[in-house]
């Protein structure tokens, strides 16, 4: 490896010495014979990401908002197709003032949280059973892969048959939506644990519990957290579906009702609510993720 000094100041070209038969020539001044090399640009070449910008993630949403606002003012976006952003805000404030909004949000959030809790707990538990034991894998994994091939939406009629049209059906449904990504990612992470670390643990003769605590759990945690992020999103998204069935409250119900009366501004508020709630909970999960995975050094940091 050449040192930095060498790169910045390449070695001087050798003087060729006296030419045969021509006698001795005075060497020309060294500077004249130096090739003109542009000074090297240090620190410009980089394949990884540069330093993160503060609030850089707002760029995309801000552009989208700007496009939407400009489109609405100029009439390029018809207000019957998509109301202007400020209409969403004023309608939202109206809804807040008559109390409908927070009631609906609260009901929806409760459903999502319950579904998330059951789905995530079961997803992680089954993934551990099927990921860490051979028999568990044979028992559960193929069944769950089979289920993955069936759209969850197609299960709704059966769920109504089994659980009725009440809260139980809705929470179960959300749980199923949440279960799948969490199971898949956790299982994948468990089966992907580096064998070298398993081997190391074996040479130390540590107990199975210690193995779980020191090798398996931290090794699979990135996958579990990723699954959780998908799961949280799935909980919110599944609300749209389950709250169309026999409901009198919730964001989905609010949207549905608005659709029947062609209130596109209320529908829009509902959509934005989903977005905000989804993003906020994803952000929360990522905070936790950053905290528990602080040892990691990756491109994303």
């Amino acid at each position: 490896m050449a040192s930095t000094a060498e790169l910045l100041h390449p070695p001087f070209p050798k003087h060729p010495g006296p030419l045969p038969g021509l006698g001795y020539h005075r060497p020309r001044p060294v500077l004249e014979t130096m090739p003109t090399v542009p000074p090297l640009q240090r620190g410009k070449y980089r394949l990884g990401l540069p330093r993160a910008w503060t609030y850089g993630w707002l760029l995309g949403p801000a552009m989208l908002l700007a496009y939407w606002a400009v489109g609405s003012t100029s009439g390029f976006i018809d207000s019957r197709i998509l109301p202007a952003p400020w209409v969403a805000v004023t309608t939202g404030i109206d809804l807040l003032q008559d109390g409908r909004l927070h009631h609906n949000v609260l009901v929806s959030a409760l459903r999502a949280a319950q579904g998330l809790f059951f789905g995530a707990t079961l997803g992680v538990a089954v993934a551990f059973l099927s990921g860490l034991s051979l028999v568990g894998g044979y028992l559960f994994d193929s069944v769950i892969q089979l289920k993955r091939a069936i759209p969850t939406l197609a299960l709704i009629p059966f769920f109504i048959l089994w659980f009725g049209v009440g809260e139980t059906m809705k929470v179960t449904m959300i749980g199923v939506f949440v279960f799948l990504p969490i199971y898949v990612h956790t299982h994948n992470a468990l089966r992907g644990i580096d064998l070298r670390f398993v081997e190391l643990a074996e040479t130390m003769r540590i107990s199975y519990l210690e193995y779980l605590r020191h090798v398996v759990l931290p090794g699979a945690l990135p996958g579990i957290m990723l699954g959780l992020r998908f799961g949280v999103m799935a909980a919110w998204v599944s609300l749209v579906v389950v709250e169309q069935i026999n409901t009198t409250s919730g964001i989905g119900y609010m949207i549905n009702l608005a659709r029947n009366y062609a209130q596109s501004d209320v529908m829009l508020v509902g959509l934005l609510l989903y977005a905000v709630l989804g993003l906020a909970s994803d952000f929360a999960v990522r905070l936790v993720e950053r905290k528990v995975l602080s040892w990691r050094r990756t491109l994303g940091q």
């Binding site: 070298r196 670390f197 020191h214």
Partner: peptide, 24 residues
């Protein structure tokens, strides 16, 4: 009591040095 040292250090990346040393 057998200890093994591998070609790679095999330190658990999610444990600090001391916790790696006293693992188990």
């Amino acid at each position: 009591r057998i200890s093994v040292v591998f070609q790679d250090s095999r330190l658990l990346p999610w444990r600090r040095l001391i916790d790696n040393v006293i693992l188990g």
